[in-house]
Amino acid sequence: MNALIASELKQRLRGKRWWILLLIWMAILLLVTALIRAGAKHQAEFEQQFGGDFVEIGPTMFGTLALFVLGLMALVVPALSSTAINSERERGTLALLQSTLYRPREIALAKFTSSFLTALVYLAASVPLALWSASEGGVGFARAVIVYVILAGSAGLFVALGLAASSLIRRTALSTLAAYVAVFTLTAGMPILFGLSLLGAPQETIERTYPGGSFTETRTVIGWRWVLLAPDPFVVLADAAPRQRSRFVSDPLDVLRQGVRSSRRESDPVVMVEKGTVITEPGTEGEGVPLEAVRDPLAQRDEPPPLWPTGLAIQAGLIGLCAYEVLRKLKVPARRLAPGERVA
């Protein structure tokens, strides 16, 4: 088992290309982080002239880095595992492994682990930049740890999707394509699907009253449709990262989190500010929330419930499904073979 993982890793690391790709990866991350820092610093200094305090350099750098690393991993990680099984079939080495005392789950786990560890090396390469961000202040330890745990989990999901593709599809070019389509569907396709699903969502009309008048408002009932957003790794990342402060600052993770959580709001936060009072909900007219709180939309009321537990559960289900398929295809003696497929 350990020998299998060691041999897999040895083969990966002996390749020169792998190291070159890692260097390019680090260079891109360094460049992006430096640019974000310069931009945030410039903006913060500009704001300070007018007494503003919205832009904070540390959270801006860290949040952008985290989202950028996730995006780059979606581009790199599927390829780490998307030919792991079918390329061995093609080379005629898989059947030899299957004829030994290795059980299918050991082979599958070794394939997963070696790809996953490789992905973690890429992730680890971003840690120095995360520390640089944190040194600017405003990034909590718990937040940083949770963000990295979620990033590692996303890498695991991408590896599992690639591995399933490599076991189900005979040709390596097609399985790589399929792995990218699966990852793209999850990261970009599902939010698009969510947007489209709102077109068919029911509308409701609410009458709102305030001291001295009333008006009606039509809004979309999102209902269950937020579930479509939940498994998106970007959504899970932003949603699960704990908030650092009650004040709303220029943290892209917080901005995204606020956006996705609004999909679970029972009613839209219509905020009307008038002479120091605010009307937030039907039936609460006259009392309102103090004006100071309204300046910070996050503080104005309780946040809607999170999406990430559902998202993680769906992701875990996907990983389970991938594992089931991979094991089914690795099982010997093999019962059914796809047309043209050979055992050896």
Binding site: N2, A3, L4, S7, K10, Q11, R14, G15, E88, R91, G92, T93, A95, L96, L97, S99, T100, L101, Y102, A344
Partner: peptide, 28 residues
């Protein structure tokens, strides 16, 4: 059973000794 197929691949980056050791580990 020791099975030797008509066509079989080898792991290109391993030496002959490593190749056999690798399969030794596969047989526990």
């Amino acid at each position: 059973v020791g099975w030797m197929p008509d066509f079989f691949g080898v792991y290109e980056s391993l030496t002959s000794l490593e190749y056999l050791e690798f399969f030794g580990a596969a047989y526990r």
